[in-house]
């Protein structure tokens, strides 16, 4: 029995492969096939150009599955849609409703405390914020819209991504199962989920938030996983040896020590969210990305560049706030080897 064991896997794989080929042949349209399947062993002309019967029928089931999803879970997606949209509109409306100097003051306040009272960072962020409106008054509200979408997308990433990252770090099987999915999420072209996103959620902010999630959550998950696994093994052992439960070890030791990495993940997540929200202007998401798109569509290079600068400023603001918060944490937890 042992002897044959090593043949099982290759056998299974090759039977699946043959099964796929049979499926593709069976599902091919009659006009693409030879009259009888034995003909393919007599006439080898199909070895020249890729034969049309050798076509794995993936598109139809995917379409059917997608339609089924819309019909069957329409209400479910509607619920998500309404929830995220409600969050977005209330956030956007309340910030847009504020006088602009108050918004700038708010940004200064947040930066000052997040960065651990660093004056330089605060002044820089304040200037960047001022310049958003200064570049063009119509950018101000659009930047707020973009910011709201990025923040909601980020919150979604954090709420879902960090627990998944933790689960990955603690369980090898979970990690092995999720890694290919993360790879897929990072490599699949964004339009592959932007357009279906419209079918599910309609035009506007929500498909953008979903797209942000798909695009920006992988680095956060990866860095959370990495951060937790990088925590000194002896420190974990110490915690366990003193009778800490898994939960106590996680919250008291692993997460605090992984926090610099997690913050790095959140920072990356923010930057990628911003990149995506600009792309999402192509699916009707309003925000500063519109202006770039409009500039490009009208071949108005100046307009596109001006809006591009606004996006860079927005990126600097986000980066400085999240980064400096991360640095503040890092200073506290850094393990300096001093033996």
């Amino acid at each position: 029995m042992e002897k044959y064991k090593k043949f099982i896997k290759p056998f299974a794989y090759s039977s699946i492969f043959i099964f796929f080929i049979i499926i593709s042949y069976r599902s091919a349209k009659p006009r693409y096939k030879p009259d009888h399947f034995t003909d393919i062993f007599k006439d080898f002309s199909w070895l020249g150009n890729w034969p049309k019967w050798l076509d794995f029928p993936l598109m139809q089931p995917l379409n059917a599955g997608f339609d089924w999803l819309i019909v069957k879970y329409g209400l479910f997606f509607e619920g998500i849609n309404n929830f995220l949209l409600g969050l977005y509109t209330s956030m956007k409306d309340s910030i847009v409703g504020l006088p602009w100097p108050i918004v700038i003051a708010l940004v200064i306040f947040i930066t000052y405390f997040a960065s651990g009272r660093k004056t330089n960072t605060t002044i820089m962020v304040a200037f960047c914020t001022f310049f958003l409106g200064f570049l063009s008054p119509r950018y101000w509200d659009k930047c707020i819209m973009t910011t709201c979408i990025v923040i909601i997308g980020m919150l979604l990433c954090i709420v879902v991504g960090i627990p998944i990252g933790i689960a990955m770090a603690r369980n090898k099987k979970v990690r092995n199962a999720l890694l290919p999915i993360l790879d897929l999420m990072q490599t699949i072209p964004s339009f592959c989920y932007l357009i279906p996103g419209i079918l599910l959620f309609g035009l506007g902010a929500v498909p953008a938030i979903i797209a942000i999630f798909v695009y920006a959550v992988p680095p956060l998950i990866r860095l959370t996983d990495l951060g937790i696994r990088l925590v000194d093994k002896e420190v974990i052992e110490a915690s366990e040896a003193f009778g800490a439960s898994k939960k106590q070890t996680l919250w008291g030791v692993q997460i605090p020590l992984a926090l610099p990495n997690i913050m790095q993940g959140i920072n990356q997540c923010t930057m990628m969210s911003l990149a995506m929200v600009v792309i999402a202007s192509m699916i009707g998401t309003r925000g500063i990305g519109d202006e770039v798109l409009l500039g490009l569509q009208q071949l108005n290079v100046g307009m596109a560049t001006e809006a591009g600068i606004a996006i860079v400023l927005l990126a600097i603001i986000f980066d400085r706030i999240t980064q400096s918060y991360g640095e503040k944490i890092q200073e506290r937890t850094q393990v300096k080897k001093k033996i």
């Binding site: 819309i70 419209i198 079918l199 309609g202 035009l203 202007s281 699916i283 009707g284 309003r286």
Partner: peptide, 20 residues
Amino acid sequence: NFDPGSGGALDAAIAGGFKK
């Protein structure tokens, strides 16, 4: 007067409406 952002998005918005 809602700007859908791209031709693909406009098509998808109409198709999505019919599907639902």
